[in-house]
């Protein structure tokens, strides 16, 4: 199997890995919420968030390069956001006391910082939490069962589907695939169609196998690990620090 697992490195052992998944979900959720509500020019707040992330990263022993490489997924979205810069009106200028830059640039910089911090948080979270634990933590925090089931199935069958598609691609290439682009798009279209039908049939077989074992519409999830003393010792200072960064290091209380 060539493709990496979603929760690569989640089986390392470190103080962070040993915490309950619920703890980690809470802390990183708080980080993302305070981050996206911070004003784009509150550089000290962002520095605080990044410092927090870097400390966690160092403690977790997850390679920095892993997080950086995966954080590249935000680039296409940032490019889309960048396209919109010229369309911000200059009329909003001067509203911000710190800088007189083009308002579009300020918005863009906000989007860039926030998406980078948020995505890095998620990558780090997935690298220190095995996915099944992540799901039971979400369940404990009140996520609807249907969403949990969807995520659980996606995690289970994603690799299988990637492999199946790879097999199709290999079988196609083995028969001297080539020709003009019109022909190629036609072939790809048919492959996607076939893939859809196969997935649909697989879903039916999986459902049969589930009902054979008494499935009644609810996917049972294992109980989340309980939060112990060390979890509270991590949650309280972390949340305090992050909220502190949000409130005291930003210019102005709110946006």
């Amino acid at each position: 199997m060539k493709h990496g697992f979603l929760d690569k490195y989640s089986d390392l052992s470190s103080p962070l890995h040993s915490l309950s998944a619920t703890t980690k979900v809470i802390v990183f959720l708080v980080l993302i919420i305070v981050c996206v509500t911070t004003a784009p020019t509150a550089y000290f707040s962002f520095a605080g968030y990044l410092a927090f992330l870097m400390v966690c990263l160092a403690v977790s022993r997850v390679p920095v390069i892993h997080v950086l490489r995966r954080s590249l997924v935000v680039v296409p979205f940032l490019a889309m956001a960048a396209l919109s810069i010229p369309f911000f009106s200059r009329a909003a200028e001067g509203r911000n006391a710190i800088t007189a830059a083009h308002p579009g640039l300020i918005v863009f910089q906000g989007i860039a910082l926030k998406s980078f911090v948020s995505v890095c948080s998620l990558i780090l979270l997935s690298a220190i939490t095995p996915f099944p634990h992540f799901l039971s933590a979400l369940r404990k925090l009140g996520t609807p069962r249907l969403l949990i089931s969807l995520m659980s199935f996606t995690y289970r069958y994603l690799f299988l589907m990637v492999e199946e598609f790879e097999r199709m691609v290999r079988a196609r290439d083995a028969r001297c695939y080539g020709g003009g682009w019109l022909w190629q798009t036609k072939v790809v279209g048919r492959m996607v169609g076939t893939f859809f039908v196969r997935s649909y049939e697989r879903a039916e077989r999986v459902y049969h196998a589930m009902t054979s074992r008494g499935f009644d519409g609810r996917v049972p999830v294992e109980d989340a690990q309980p939060m112990r003393l060390k979890d509270h010792l991590f949650v309280l200072p972390s949340v305090g620090f992050l909220v502190g960064c949000r409130i005291f290091l930003a210019p102005g209380w709110l946006f």
Binding site: F131, P132, L135, S152, F153, Y155, R156, Y157, R202, R205, V206, H208, A209, M210, R213, F215, P220, V221, E222
Partner: peptide, 14 residues
């Protein structure tokens, strides 16, 4: 088709 849970334990416990 039969094993759809994130872990072997969950699948056998299903």
């Amino acid at each position: 088709d039969q094993l759809f849970c994130p872990t072997v334990f969950d699948d056998v416990a299903f």
